[in-house]
């Protein structure tokens, strides 16, 4: 067992935590914004996949990496708009619409990818984001390589968490989003348009989901392949519950989850010959389910989550 403890002290593990957490931070924040406004967005898995594809494709076609990220965010926002139009003004089932968005966004992503990139032996690659190098800080022992040698999108994700936490808790806009998620009738009585707020929240949240997907193809890896999201979107939906719909806790939850994921990856190499590797790979999904069970009793669900708002109806 000594190896299991030795891994805990390795630089590689802690450097991986922030990297693995980044798409989860984006995705969880995105889902959180939608849900705070009262809309469950199960399109997340497909939107992340589409964002991963579109961001990669833009860079592959010659755009720079930041334009790639922007393309992914716009692609995500477009599917978010579709989800929002169907679930908010039309009031269709958020569960079924979200699944439909996931199936459409992922298959459309594969289709466009195949159109642009014909089948080849090895998938084509791009040059991904390079880790930043801050003179002084990046050279610090242990802290340097773990905290100050990540790629730029990772810091963007952390900045987003801080910004969203501030906006939701401290600004009139955040109050409008929260009111719409708790009691849209009361919000309307205050002169807030719940329909506009919900559509806006879902579009913004979905843009973040697209960014989360693009991190995978533009920073963590350098190519796109179908099924690369591997349920990360569903994990994000679980993390929102774990975070009790609070952005700060969402950041913490994503980091905690990424720690377990990074740890199991290293345990896998250490003990893979004795224990089937699949058991390690199951851990993230099982942990998500456990997190849901533990938090379910205490969680403060937005009161109007999944309830369509129709003007003049009680």
């Amino acid at each position: 067992m000594s190896e299991a403890f030795e891994i805990l002290g390795s630089v590689g593990l802690w450097a991986a935590v922030l990297r693995i957490a980044t798409p989860l931070i984006f995705g969880t924040l995105g889902a959180l914004i939608c849900e705070r406004a009262g809309v469950l967005n199960l399109g997340i898995e497909g939107i992340m996949s589409f964002g991963a594809m579109l961001g990669w494709l833009a860079v592959f076609q010659g755009a720079d990496l930041w334009t790639g990220l922007l393309a992914a965010a716009i692609g995500g926002a477009a599917f978010g708009l579709l989800h929002a139009v169907m679930t908010v003004p039309l009031g269709l089932s958020q569960h079924v619409t979200g699944l439909g968005i996931t199936l459409l966004a992922s298959s459309l992503g594969y289709y466009v990818f195949r159109l642009a990139v014909p089948v080849q032996g090895t998938p084509p690659t791009i040059t991904p984001f390079a880790p930043i190098d801050i003179p002084g800080l990046s050279d610090l022992p242990f802290i340097g390589p773990t905290l100050f040698a990540q790629t730029p999108p990772t810091y963007l994700a952390i900045a987003c968490a801080a910004l969203i936490a501030y906006v939701i808790a401290r600004t009139p806009l955040g109050l409008a989003v929260r009111m719409t998620g708790e009691n849209p009738h009361a919000a309307e009585a205050q002169g807030i348009d719940p329909i506009a707020v919900r559509i806006g929240a879902v579009v913004c949240g979905s843009a973040l989901m697209g960014l989360g997907g693009a991190f995978l193809t533009l920073s963590a890896f350098n190519s796109f392949f179908p099924t690369m999201i591997q349920g990360r979107g569903w994990v994000c939906i679980a993390l929102v519950v774990f975070a009790a719909w609070r952005p700060g806790r969402a950041l913490f939850g994503a980091l905690l989850f990424a720690f377990f994921d990074a740890y199991q990856l290293r345990l896998q190499t250490a003990y893979g010959s004795v224990v089937p590797y699949q058991l390690f790979l199951m851990m993230p999904y099982i942990l998500s389910i456990v997190a849901l069970i533990v938090m379910s009793r205490r969680a403060r669900v937005p009161q109007a989550l999944m309830q369509p708002y129709r003007r003049g109806e009680r």
């Binding site: 569960h95 591997q230 999904y285 099982i286 998500s288 389910i289 849901l292 069970i293 379910s296 009793r297």
Partner: peptide, 27 residues
């Protein structure tokens, strides 16, 4: 049962279990 006992949304749990089962089959 988790939904009835703890109020856990079965959408997410059934989705996550898909990945667990596929890994189990692979194992």
């Amino acid at each position: 049962a988790l939904r009835l006992r703890f109020g856990v949304d079965e959408v997410v749990t059934t989705l996550l279990l898909n990945f667990v089962v596929l890994l189990f089959v692979s194992m």
